[in-house]
Design a binder for these strands. Structure first.
Length: 313
DNA sequence: AAGGGTGCCAACCGCGTTTAG
DNA sequence: GCTAAACGCGGTTGGCACCCT
């Protein structure tokens, strides 16, 4: 690869900066219908003047239905501290332990809050973290499933918004972390797969209710980047209408909403057609999407929601 | 009330890794 | 096996909101 990397897109022809609600809608609608098998061609196919990377980032960090918004619970913060000690700045790895949290969000929380709490010596340097990464990575892998289960359960039992509690500024010492690990292990032993899925489902349902309704045009410009929560909530509820079983797979982010695992191959075929012909093809479940559009109209007070959807398809 | 400083976070950039031809 | 394209990750930045003086 000696020629250097070609730019991912023509910077002069793509829009940059904060996403507008209309762009969010366009992206959501397109992915809802066609999935995202090729980020590079997606913006062109969806009618977005955005770089594919930008679309991917927007989707992963804000628009995908299982993204969890709101403050981090004490348990989540403790977990971030714990796994950062183990893994270092492997944000995506840490994010995989915290369902619904993105690597970007965790990175921001670490840099703005958690790092400041710790004494300088307890923050792993890049060299020290790499020197222990092998052994600890294995430990982290082994802890992965049980920690996921724990945070699902936290959501389910309503202990999420605990940042104001007197203990929320408390920092784990190593013995305490060990105790937490033991507790995690005990609970993991009590959970079977069905319980895990139940908790996951409950978590996602709770997640839909994190933000109140608010008319789009009543918001100041700065908060328009947060409008995705409107779509996110509406989408989550729409999933209840269309394909409730999709809630059972929080980590299968690549399977678009409204498409089950069984239909994924078919969806890929649809993508192939789109890429080849560069023209939209009819949705296999247009009735469901129309229902979703109507729901979104009500949720967002966005009069021409259906129009936006039609334009980009 | 105004202005400067600080914090926060969404988004961008560039590089390493993976995948496809 | 090689090369180029695409993806994914982590670091960094820009700009808004809030706080303090």
């Amino acid at each position: 690869m000696g020629k250097g990397r070609a730019p991912c897109c023509d910077k002069s022809k793509v829009k940059r900066g904060p996403w507008s609600p209309q762009e969010d809608l366009t992206l959501i609608t397109f992915i809802q219908k066609h999935g995202h098998h090729n980020w590079r061609s997606l913006p062109k196919l969806a009618g977005l003047m955005r770089c594919g990377k930008s679309c991917r980032l927007r989707w992963i960090n804000y628009l995908r239905p299982d993204v969890k918004r709101g403050n981090f619970s004490k348990e989540e913060e403790d977990a971030i501290i714990h796994f950062h000690q183990t893994l270092g700045n492997k944000w995506s790895k840490i994010a995989s332990f915290l369902p619904g949290r993105t690597d970007n969000e965790i990175k921001n929380v670490w840099n703005t809050h958690l790092k400041k709490r710790l004494p300088p010596s307890s923050s792993p340097s890049s060299s020290s973290s790499s020197s222990i990464s092998c052994t600890h990575d294995q430990t982290a892998e082994a802890d992965h499933d049980k920690n996921c289960a724990i945070f699902q359960e936290d959501e389910n039992s309503g202990v999420n918004e605990s940042q104001g509690s007197p203990s929320s500024s408390h920092i784990h010492t190593n013995p305490e972390l060990l105790k937490v690990d033991e507790e995690l292990h005990d609970i993991q032993l009590l959970l079977d797969n069905d319980d895990f899925e139940d908790i996951t489902s409950a978590f996602l349902k709770t997640n839909e209710m994190l933000y109140p309704e608010q008319p789009l045009d009543s918001l100041p410009h700065h908060h328009q980047t947060h409008l995705s929560t409107e779509f996110h909530n509406a989408w989550g509820a729409a999933q209840e209408v269309t394909k409730p079983q999709s809630h059972d797979h929080p980590h299968q982010q690549d399977i678009p909403c409204g498409l089950t695992e069984e239909t994924n191959d078919g969806e890929f075929d649809l993508w192939s057609q789109l890429v080849e012909s560069n023209s939209p093809t009819p949705s296999p479940s247009s009735e469901d999407f129309n229902e979703w559009f109507n729901f979104m109209d009500n949720q967002t007070c966005f009069d021409d929601f259906t129009l936006v959807g039609e334009v980009c398809l």
